[in-house]
Design a protein around this nucleic acid. Structure first.
Lengths: 137, 137
DNA sequence: ATAGTGTACTAGTCTAATTAGTACACCTAT
DNA sequence: ATAGGTGTACTAATTAGACTAGTACACTAT
């Protein structure tokens, strides 16, 4: 049994979907700092995915600062956004924020307006999603 | 000169990017109801894209309820989300809302938490993006 | 030593996006 | 009516990216 829930959406890159599923599990508290993460080979079998693909997933999660490698042992869930935990320097942080605004926030606002949803309702939707992540803990 | 601004992001489907650019132009008021939209062949030339691709863009925008076809004449920007304007029945609307929550709102919240951004700050970001669309009018 | 861990590398396969080319039905001017 | 504009439909070829396949290496715990 994998320590995170996953519903595959055919047509979109499997790697991104899994990375997102793990990220959601971490930020919602389903995976906590210190928890051991499945090995590349285990991931490969459970997800029925190529070892190479599983490796790329782990690498991306390490780069994102959600997993830490203990050489020869395995990977562990980290306390993300900890002081100098990952590679989160000032410049990285600034570009991350810019990406969040451009790739996530703006498209959300655009789609909301297309559907005729007002700002107040949109904010309420965001608040609800935020609390939903807390509840799944 | 095209009636919308576009910055291509290599690696992502060109069709989606252009559809998004037009959608943003419409919901921000840069394109208003009644404005004529460039023909498929004009689009093809200006965007340096295959006529087939341009046609698919127009088709998607019509399906989204942003453009209306005047047979033999061309396409016009519609007053989107008008009573029974597009194909926006109750069921479509419900699934559109669900997609907005799952594909846009939740990922935004997840990424915000990954970056250590609080709910209040996130809401402020959404508000700022909303107003930014008004200013670009 | 043995078996587990992450990592690296080169090919090959497979699928989706885009391009290419042609054709048709429609409308509006000249 | 004829010429030139519009959106639409269709099949085929090409391109690009994601994923798979297979092998090998350095490291660590037991």
């Amino acid at each position: 049994m994998l320590p995170f829930s996953l519903t595959v959406r055919p047509g979109e890159p499997i790697v991104e979907q899994i990375v997102y599923a793990v990220t959601r599990a971490v930020v919602s508290g389903q995976l906590r700092a210190g928890d051991r993460f499945p090995s590349v080979r285990t991931l490969s079998q459970e997800l029925k995915v190529n070892p190479n693909t599983a490796q790329r997933i782990v690498a991306l999660l390490v780069e994102a600062g959600l997993l830490a490698v203990e050489p020869g042992v395995g990977t562990v869930v980290t306390n993300h956004r900890q002081p100098t935990a990952g590679g989160a320097d000032a410049a990285t942080r600034r570009s991350d924020l810019a990406a969040l605004e451009e790739r996530l926030a703006e498209p959300l606002v655009v789609e909301a307006r297309r559907l005729g949803i007002g700002l107040a309702d949109l904010v309420e939707i965001v608040r609800r999603q935020w609390k939903r992540l807390d509840q799944s803990r």
